[in-house]
Design a protein around this nucleic acid. Structure first.
Lengths: 222, 222
DNA sequence: GCCCCTATGTAACCTGCGTCACAGAAGATC
DNA sequence: GATCTTCTGTGACGCAGGTTACATAGGGGC
């Protein structure tokens, strides 16, 4: 990605940077690294240190906890216009990572070095607010997740997951299981009951939501 | 609590404020409210708005998710020297609360009004770092919690909980269940098996950890 | 077509843990 | 001491969901 398009993409995705002066922006881009990595790249892992504040321009990152058994559970996803707060926390000199980040597709990001991150944080109020906003959003998400895992049955959670993915879902049962922290067989079993009830129709790597209203009711635990 | 002791307690518990000038501190104390509330007070609830940045001087707050079934799960506790990041997020104008906060004992706190919070955040780097630190710490805790709830069995989690409460634990089985998101009967049952294996000895509202080493192994899932 | 790989179906089984329904016990109140 | 309340012990039962172990099927490469 060339410098000009990086710049325009940044401004477009990160309104918090819009009000930066031209020269400050130049300075930042010189200090930063733009990286593009292929799908599947492990960006960070439990216990690995971290050296930059990443801003995603393109692609997405799955942030995941994995159990020794091989089961895995998705904590959240980082989309363009967002940043991984784990990195932030890590950079602030606190605890090391406690999860794994994997590029879900080809990924382009700008890596802001710590000194510049701190500078922005102290000097640029919109950026500071933006970062705070990210934090609180993630925390809210994590709380929702805790609640779901602790109190909701898997059929509810699966229904909710499907509803969040649009009318036609392209995913394998294994991928869905990995988002939910469950296993493939159970997802298959539940999907079958959904299909029998006329809520979805199933195909290879494709699930069509036939009756989203009823599915919503399942998700709500009715 | 009189003004002088509030001041000294603040400086003692919040080193981030230590470097504030005398006059800035005065200004802050004038703007802030010091509140003392009795044990059991509900400080905030799902969907309730929020108007200040609280700094706990004395006592503690349980932050909890509760399910319609009546089961409840503790997300974290706020101790003296800490603040509830939920409030922070809420104050930044983002989402409303998604949990409940309950005073675990008599509670004294300083409530910093939003405009002053923002001022401190932008002008006082140590405070900013402190707040960031809180955020990242909570996020790490929440991730641990998600992992525990999703992948660890209840006996592991109970063992870990006991180990985190010292050699002799004073709590009812119901209280332990409420921290774990489970129910009393199961906690009683598990404690009994612990007792039979010589890991703990049980009394009314008292659990003595007889063999912490073995208990640690249970917690690790050995 | 043939082979291989990945995705899916699905049945039998086991276990963890939540629910229900009590009963006894230790303090607390009077 | 009598009664009440809170805490604890315990058994029977049910169900969600994880584990194991295959079978089948589609799709792509050759």
């Amino acid at each position: 990605m060339d410098s000009a398009s990086v710049r325009s993409r940044l401004k477009e995705l990160y309104p918090a940077l819009a009000s930066m002066s031209q020269t400050a922006m130049d300075e930042m881009l010189v200090a930063s690294m733009v990286k593009t990595v292929p799908k599947g790249t492990v960006l960070f892992d439990e216990n690995s240190p971290c050296q930059a504040f990443p801003m995603v321009l393109d692609g997405s990152v799955r942030v995941v906890k994995s159990a020794p058994s091989g089961r895995e559970l998705q904590l959240y996803r980082v989309l363009p216009g967002e940043s991984c707060i784990l990195s932030t926390g890590c950079m602030m000199g606190n605890a090391p990572y406690s999860a794994t980040g994997i590029a879900e597709s080809e990924l382009t990001l700008v890596a802001l070095p710590p000194h510049f991150f701190h500078k922005l944080l102290s000097e640029h109020a919109p950026f500071r607010n933006y970062v705070f906003g990210l934090f609180t959003e993630r925390i809210a998400e994590l709380m929702q997740l805790v609640e779901a895992v602790a109190f909701h049955k898997l059929d509810q959670r699966l229904a909710a997951l499907l509803l969040g993915k649009g009318k036609v879902v392209h995913a394998t049962h294994q991928q869905l299981a990995d988002e939910l922290g469950s296993v493939r067989e159970i997802v298959s079993r539940l999907l079958k009951t959904f299909a029998e009830r006329g809520l979805v129709s199933l195909g290879r790597e494709e699930i069509e939501l036939v009756n989203p209203v009823a599915l919503r009711q399942v998700a709500e635990g009715v």
